[in-house]
Design a protein around this nucleic acid. Structure first.
Lengths: 227, 227
DNA sequence: GCAAAAGTGTTGTTCGTACACCCATGA
DNA sequence: TCATGGGTGTACGAACAACACTTTTGC
């Protein structure tokens, strides 16, 4: 294999989702350099020479948010001829989920600004990032139905109403409260923390925690999550 | 962006599935050059400079099998440091499905031999192809449950028993004949060709055809295939 | 005591599953 | 006529969908 085949570049781009009790959000950065100077874009970076793909994603997430061990999932690779004005750059798209209140702004050097945007109001993004975003949003919808990943977007302790609102927001639908709770309880992936909501001007809700250990036990015995 | 970032290579690899009435098969090539000389490997090639990813896959499929318009689906990109001995080569893995009787051997220059292997008996493959194969096989299983792609592996006209065997083989399970037929018929994606099986020494089965037009109509109205 | 959200059970319907016999053909 | 796979219906239980009222808290 002649060395002149080694003339492409590969990056990762990350669709970072957060949820703030009313709205699904995505974290975008404002580009601080050409091309697409001042456009909003998905956070991402070139993959370094001695770096695996997943590690590049972790690095970008850590740089941008200060967080490690964030949920992430590879979605698709985009590499159309001409998608990048400076050369042939392939990009591996990921989506990731984080608890929005854990996030602290820590803008990396290549971004002048980072900001949460409602997924309902995304303007024109840099490069082919609108296409990447759309693909990843759809993948989130598909995944959330068959994997218990919604919890990644909620605080450690949450109420059933919050959980229901989250699913309704992502799936753009509504559920009957009683049927939703019945389903959730039948699955047995939640444990009560014993705590109640504080200082709400109505009956306080019980707080629950996602039982990851039990989930791992269940998948080993052939269980399939479905909502 | 400095030009010295453009020093990676990107390939595609394709897990090509076929089905021969008893067995799920994958088409492998025997490598005719180093590295991994004489190892069995997934068909693939480097992506050319002015070539989109999907087009590279179509090209490899056409070169190898003579077929165009083969079903294909991007699965995942593999790019671990050290996965290729000659440099940093990322590979975008696809699976594809074809009617095995349409296939004619047309080995491309880089292969000394191409051969169908039972998916149950795959030895040690070149590079990280065992991992890629495993990922794509799992993706086939997941996809076949929610998309009517099984038909891509069968002849144009097929019997319900053939269809059932195919699903049982892929999903490694068995179905009750009556329930399977009930489900298939209720969906309404098959039309009778009016023909019967010929020269079998038992009652000949009706032949059916997958109704692609009706399927497209159904997905537009929100239908979700599920088996 | 009132506003606001939490929490809970029953019933009808739909869907999945289990199961056994007759039919059409070639040899 | 026999061997081989093709083709069909019913009954039971599980899962899902629809639906309304009481409870607890802050103000």
């Amino acid at each position: 294999m002649p060395l002149d085949n080694f003339n492409y570049s590969v990056s990762i781009d990350c669709v970072i989702f957060g949820y703030d009790t009313t709205d699904l959000k995505v974290l975008l950065i404002k580009r601080g350099e050409a091309p697409y100077l001042n456009y909003w874009a998905l956070p991402g970076d070139l993959i370094k020479e001695k770096e695996n793909i997943d590690d590049a994603v972790s690095r970008v997430l850590k740089d941008l948010t200060g967080l490690s061990n964030v949920y992430m999932d590879q979605v698709k690779t985009f590499g159309d001829v001409g998608r990048h004005p400076l050369g042939r750059v392939f990009t591996v798209a990921y989506f990731s989920l984080l608890k929005i209140e854990d996030y602290q702004l820590n803008p990396s050097s290549f971004a002048t600004e980072a900001k949460w945007h409602s997924v309902k109001r995304i303007g024109e993004l840099a490069f082919d990032h609108n296409k990447i975003f759309a693909t990843c949003k759809q993948e989130l919808v598909n995944s959330v139905k068959v994997k218990p990943i919604g919890f990644e977007l909620l605080p450690e302790a949450f109420t059933l109403t919050e959980l229901q609102n989250l699913y309704e927001t992502i799936l753009q639908t509504t559920f009957d409260t009683r049927n939703f709770r019945k389903k959730i309880h039948s699955v047995g992936l939640l444990t009560e923390t014993g705590e109640l909501q504080k200082s709400v001007s109505h009956r306080p809700a019980k707080l629950y925690r996602f039982d990851k250990a039990n989930y791992k036990k269940l998948i080993k015995s052939g269980y399939n999550f479905e909502i």
